[in-house]
Design a binder for these strands. Sequence first.
DNA 1: CGCTTTTGACCAGCGC
DNA 2: GCGCTGGTCAAAAGCG
Length: 240
Amino acid sequence: MGSDESSQWMLNHKFEEQDLIISSELGVFPFHANFASLPMLGNICSQPLIKTTTLPPPPPNCLAADSPALTLSHHSNQKEDLITTSHFAAGSQILALQTSSPSSNYWAWGELSDCMSMKRSGGDDHHHHHLGVSAMKMKKIKGRRKVREPRFCFKTMSDVDVLDDGYKWRKYGQKVVKNTQHPRSYYRCTQDNCRVKKRVERLADDPRMVITTYEGRHIHSPSHDEDDSQASAQLNNFFW
DNA sequence: CGCTTTTGACCAGCGC
DNA sequence: GCGCTGGTCAAAAGCG
C-alpha cells in the first residue's frame, strides 16, 4: 500500500471536513462528524508486558483532511512477540484495543484513559499506574490455540445506537448483561463470507454514551452507495 | 416475498 | 460437577 492509494481512497470517499477517521491495524473506520464526541486524547498502555514508546509519524492512511492524528506504538518489553501500532484521529475516544500475535498464545488488552497527563510520562512505565491507566489484562488461552479475532472498542456520544460506519449490519442477538439497565446488541456484517461482528451497548453510568466493539476484519470495503462499489472493489486489498 | 428484527432456547467458558 | 454469564442460533414476527 502506498500513499497514492491512501489519498485516492480519501478522494473516492469524499470525506467532509469534519469527518472523523479512526484508523488502526484493524483498518480504517470513517464516522460522520455528528457522531464525534469528545476530543480524543487517549493512550494505550499496559504493564508490565507492554509499554508505550515514542510516537512515530502516522502513516498516510490514517490522516483525514485537517484532522490531527495521534499515533501510538507499543510493544513487548520482555519478548518481541507482541507488536502493535495504532493510529487514530481526533474526535472520538477510544476505550481499548486488543491485539493478539500469531506467535503467542497470549492476548493482551490495554485500556485507554485520559492522556493529558500521559504525555508527560515520557515513556517511563513506572508512572503509568499513577496516571490512571488501567492495569493490563492478560489471559492465556487454554488448550487448543484459539486465534482470537482482533478487536477494539470506543465510546461515542450519540442518540442512535448503531453508528454509520459505512458497513451494513444485521442484528443477530440482544442480551441484558449483568449490572446494566441497557441491553447489549450483537450485529454481524451482512456481506457474504465476511465474519466481522460488532457489539453495541450504552454506558451504565452515562446512557448518552454508546460503546461499540468491533471484532474481526472486513474482507471488503464499506458499501455506502451502489455507485461506490466499483471504486471500492479495487481497494479491498488496501483495506484489510 | 424477501430481508431484518425480536426473543427464548441453547451452548460454551469460567469460577467455585 | 454445577451454576452463572455472555454469546449465538433459529423460528416467528415485523416491515417495506
